[in-house]
């Protein structure tokens, strides 16, 4: 059995006394590729921020790599790509390698400059995302898809065991999206990085991920077979409301040998 990377037990959280997550339970194992979907305001980003320790839960427990989050120190094992990361001030005069190297802060240490070994890690992360030739380019001169790849490289430079991505395809064209999804597949299958991907693109995510979790109305629903979710209109209604019964993206996707319209 794979090691448990994230274990969430009876987690509750809310804003201004209003609960938005209620008694949430979730287990994510090493090597998982979990898609996290749900309508706007269903607390997907909040849930990720609780896992990252940015927000403190009202009740319940979060364990990361078999350690309680309150004593967890190995944050370098977790990579995070924030929502709308590509909308960061791209007029900022920073080169691609300067942005990626910044995330080595814990390894380099305070007051010190990155050494040769750190720069080779930067190079390796940029090679992985296919941007090694653009390492000296200003981040503002890149396309939306390339900027997202820089931020993915920034997360990968610490060689994380868990990678959380919050809507990475927003503002990225179809070709760029395809490249991003292929990269995530590679990271999960070849590098064995556990991935949690938040997205609104239900059809594509369902085809890409190994497991699917849906957040809505303070609850979480987990599907061990993602296509089970799409194949039942009841599931869509449960997560997105009665008004939506089917989602049609007009392209066929293959998932684990089975073919269906997403």
């Amino acid at each position: 059995m794979s090691a448990t990377v994230i274990k969430v037990q009876d987690l509750s959280f809310g804003y201004n006394a209003k609960p938005i997550l209620n008694n949430i339970n979730l287990r994510v194992n090493a090597g998982d590729f979990l898609g996290l979907i749900g309508p706007n305001g269903s607390a997907k980003t909040t849930f990720i921020k609780l896992i990252l320790g940015i927000l403190k839960p009202w009740r319940g427990q979060i364990r990361l790599f078999d350690q309680d989050i309150t004593v967890f120190k190995r944050w370098d094992k977790i990579g995070y790509l924030a929502q709308r990361a590509a909308s960061v001030n791209i007029g900022f005069p920073a080169t691609v390698e300067e942005v990626v190297a910044a995330n080595l802060y814990r390894q380099v240490g305070p007051f010190r400059a990155p050494k040769k070994t750190h720069w080779s890690k930067v190079q390796s992360a940029l090679e992985t995302v296919g941007l090694i030739n653009k390492r000296k380019c200003l981040i503002g001169n890149l396309s939306g898809g390339e900027v997202q790849k820089v931020f993915i490289a920034r997360a990968l430079v610490n060689e994380p065991a868990l990678f959380l991505l919050d809507e990475p395809t927003v503002g990225v064209d179809l070709k760029g999206q395809e490249g991003l999804y292929e990269l995530l597949d590679q990271l999960n299958k070849q590098w064995h990085i556990t991935i949690i991907l938040i997205s609104h693109d239900v059809g594509v995510v369902t085809a890409r991920v190994k497991r699917l979790a849906c957040l809505n109305d303070t609850q979480i629903f987990v599907f061990d077979q993602p296509f089970d979710f799409l194949s039942s209109p009841d599931n869509l209604a449960k997560v997105y409301g009665q008004g939506m019964q089917t989602l049609i993206h007009c392209h066929q996707v293959n998932c684990k040998g089975r073919s269906f319209n997403a």
Partner: peptide, 22 residues
Amino acid sequence: VFLRKELFFVTFEEEAARLAGV
């Protein structure tokens, strides 16, 4: 000079800097 890395990261993106331990 001593805090150039920290100042750079915080100026570029505060949330990512905080997560990186700055």
